[in-house]
Simulated assay, not measured.
Amino acid sequence: MTEASEAGDAPRAAPDVFAPARLGPLRLRNRIIKAATFEGMAPDSLVTDELIDYHRRPAAGGVAMTTVAYCGVVPEGRTHRGQLWMRPEALPGLRRLTAAVHETGAAVAVQLGHAGPVADARSNGAPALSPMGGFNPVGLRRNRAATARDLHRVVEAHAHAAALAATAGFDAVELHLGHNYLASAFLSPRLNRRTDEYGGPLRHRARLALEIAASVRRALGDRIAITAKLNMTDGVRGGLTPEDSLQVAGWLQEAGSVDALTLTAGSSLLNPMYLFRGDVSVKEFAAPFPQPQRLGLRLLGRTFLRDYPYEPLYLLDKALRFRRELTLPLVLLGGVTDRDGMARAMTEGFEFVAMARALLREPDLVRRLRRDPSARSRCIHCNRCVPTIYSGTHCPLID
């Protein structure tokens, strides 16, 4: 970490980002992870050749591990029907995917979760669950307030999905506890005003997230690595604060239910650009949506798609507090695109770094950075890749 070494007062030397590292029971060839970004390449909720190639390319390009996103643990937990959900029928395709990645020498993780109020109920053909119910602008339907029975089912579904992931050959699972998906929505005081055992004080609001992580640990033991993606802040008034997030992270650390945390921020429901810093074109974001969502986004998009200028390591300042107060391995994401940023992350005590958008434009960026420390990413942070998730995520600048 950042503390003094055992010998006394000299700080521990920062590791080389390209040196091998351990993540729980997993040994990675370096410390660079491809972050989960929805691929839009599973129209029948099953693995396709396009999805396999999407992950094979950055794996061949040098990342230590690529992360398949986003896999619902139950059908209504998808953000959209054209999205993977974990079930036995998906197993053959998942095995083909993991084998293809392993052939490159990289590891492969799968992100598991329940989209909750971010789910498109109209697309899924099933009500979206949320802490409180209410209108869902994603699918223009009403959410259904999750019952305790619903939540027990979701917890068990995470355990079953994790066990299936291990059977499919994945090296790690990442639990989605961020971006106001279901577990994250329960953490938010703004979205969760329940008065039962899942609402009120932070320990109650964190119950779902903690139960999910505990159930997955029981299901997997130490067979494969377990990580979680956790919001440091929702980036909205009345949402999860860094102080509360740090407490949740401390509870996860104390329980030993995860091997590392990926620190993220923002709300897919209320403020998505808090994470995706850089340019934003409301017109381009609205184009893939059917009416009347398209018109609504065109008219009101600026209240939802806010401007956050890009800068390197844009989540570092917030993440440093977590690094100071936790011993759990941490993954830094947000503006990690060059050797200087990676070295800074290592110096500050982060065990891993994650990148996503830059790898869309250059799947071989990691290999290029290793060969040439002065190399620079060609990603210009225009965010034109984000609306492509509905037609197969890619960088439009290389079409």
Score class of each variant (00 low, 15 high):
Thr303Ala: 12
Gly301Tyr: 10
Arg339Tyr: 08
Gly296Cys: 08
Thr327Ile: 04
Leu297Glu: 00
Phe304Ala: 10
Asp307Leu: 08
Gly296Asn: 13
Pro290Ser: 11
Arg298Asp: 03
Thr303Leu: 08
Asp338Gly: 10
Tyr310His: 09
Pro288Tyr: 04
Val331Pro: 01
Asp307Pro: 05
Ala319Leu: 09
Arg324Pro: 10
Leu315Ala: 10
Ala286Asp: 01
Tyr308Ser: 14
Thr337Ile: 09
Gly334Ala: 03
Val280Ala: 15
Pro312Cys: 03
Phe289Tyr: 14
Pro288Arg: 11
Gly301Pro: 04
Leu305Phe: 07
Arg298His: 05
Gly335Asp: 04
Arg306Tyr: 03
Thr337Gly: 13
Gly334Arg: 02
Leu326Met: 01
Pro329Gln: 01
Pro312Gln: 04
Pro329Ser: 02
Leu300Pro: 05
Leu320Asn: 12
Leu330Glu: 07
Leu333Met: 12
Leu295Asp: 13
Arg323Lys: 03
Leu295Ile: 06
Leu315Pro: 01
Glu311Thr: 13
Gln293Asn: 09
Leu305Tyr: 10
Pro290Ala: 06
Leu315Tyr: 15
Pro309Val: 01
Leu297Ser: 04
Gln291Arg: 13
Pro309Leu: 00
Val336Leu: 04
Leu328Gly: 04
Arg321Asp: 07
Pro312Ala: 01
Asp307Thr: 15
Gly335Tyr: 12
Gln291Ile: 07
Thr327Pro: 10
Lys318Val: 12
Tyr310Leu: 03
Leu300Lys: 05
Gly335Asn: 00
Arg306Cys: 02
Glu311Lys: 14
Glu311Tyr: 14
Leu320Phe: 03
Leu326Lys: 02
Leu320Arg: 14
